[in-house]
């Protein structure tokens, strides 16, 4: 039973995403995808004293909600993989401390949701767990104060800059995918790719080569082409990064343009919401996948989806020390299981 399809890609035989939940902030709740999110926060604080507490609460409530939708209790969850952007991943550490679920903390910057789904899928398919959850969060206010300047500081954002999503997402994965379920079929783990971009305000541009590398490996190792998917999504490349990705792949004869979307270009209205190059943050692909795209799959509008989470593995310290921005991208392919193939 060899599940290795190539150096980076593995096959998953029998895992489904049972349920998912997405919680977003006020600004995301005014965006075009508002109706797909389970909870829209009334304000940035959500009755907490600090934004870090708010972010932890969002992560916790997203997990609770996903588990509740699955008609399970927290005690049914064998494992949870979670992480966020805060130093030492305190969003997860503090958010999940009361849940009493065996916990692996992970960090993949904004690719964390896809990393979590990947690890949970392998754990379940390997027979080590029956159910596992993946979760992540990001908050505009916690990210700004950690990576950039205080909120009230009068600075100007560059045209390439992206807006960190206030959002948390959780998915419950389970063994035994039945017809109609959203099955996880393949995972492609990304390599760290660094093209020497030093502008921390141009993360889409810094991450695009990593997404290119992972998507290329995915198609070549599985001998597939973009048209085998109904939809290919990336996390938060934004306007600049997603254009670059499309062009880089096109140079190698891989044309993703007909069915490609970037979550960073979907969650906000680019004309009305003044987010410059689009959205970013762990919560970006987290909420857009768990809220919007999984809903489209459940409704049968999308049957096969390739979700590529993209992360910039920088820190404020590395940027100050003049380091470039290393990028990472992990891919998960999802498919609505059809009747005849029941296992």
């Amino acid at each position: 039973m060899n599940k290795k399809c190539g150096r980076q890609t593995v096959r998953i035989d029998n895992v489904k995403i049972k349920t998912a939940a997405a919680i977003v902030g006020e600004k995301e709740g005014q965006g075009p995808l508002a109706q797909y999110f389970d909870i829209v926060l009334p304000n940035n604080e959500w009755n907490e004293k600090t934004w870090e507490k708010t972010e932890s609460k969002m992560q916790r409530e997203a997990i609770r909600l996903a588990v509740q939708k699955a008609r399970l209790s927290l005690a049914d969850m064998d494992r949870i993989f979670s992480g966020d952007l805060l130093n030492q991943c305190i969003g997860a550490g503090f958010g999940l401390r009361d849940l009493e679920i065996p916990f692996y903390g992970i960090y993949g910057a904004c690719s964390t949701m896809i990393e979590g789904i990947s690890l949970a899928s392998m754990l379940i398919d390997g027979g080590f767990a029956q159910r596992a959850a993946a979760a992540t969060s990001s908050h505009f206010c916690t990210a700004e104060r950690q990576y950039r300047t205080p909120l009230e500081y009068g600075g100007q954002r560059t045209p390439n800059s992206q807006w960190t999503v206030t959002g948390a997402a959780a998915a419950v994965l389970e063994t035994d995918a039945e017809p109609g379920d959203i099955a996880v079929t393949h995972l492609t783990a990304g390599k760290i790719v660094d093209m020497g971009i030093k502008d921390a305000n141009n993360m889409g541009g810094a991450m695009a080569p990593a997404a290119y590398d992972t998507i290329k490996a995915h198609f070549s190792e599985l001998n597939m082409k973009p048209s085998d998917y109904d939809m290919i999504i990336t996390g938060d490349l934004g306007k600049v990064g997603s254009e670059i990705l499309t062009e880089l792949l096109a140079q190698d004869g891989i044309d993703i343009s007909p069915n490609y979307k970037d979550c960073g270009c979907l969650i906000y209205d680019p004309e009305e919401q003044d987010v410059h190059a689009g959205a970013s943050g762990c919560g970006c692909i987290g909420t857009v996948l768990c809220g919007y795209f999984l809903d489209k799959m459940r409704k049968g509008e999308i049957k096969k989806l390739l979700a590529v989470g993209t992360g910039a593995l920088l820190s404020p310290t590395s940027s100050l020390q003049g380091e470039s921005v290393p990028g990472i991208a992990h891919a998960v392919s999802l498919e609505v299981k059809t009747g005849g193939e029941k296992q």
């Binding site: 560059t158 971009i197 141009n202 080569p209 590398d213 670059i244 140079q251 190698d252």
Partner: peptide, 21 residues
């Protein structure tokens, strides 16, 4: 991808919008 780091930086600069000076 056949671009060197420097070529990619130049390409990225071309793709990135400029500030409205």
């Amino acid at each position: 991808m056949k671009l060197t780091n420097q070529e990619y930086q130049e390409y990225l600069n071309k793709k990135s919008p400029d500030s409205t000076l």
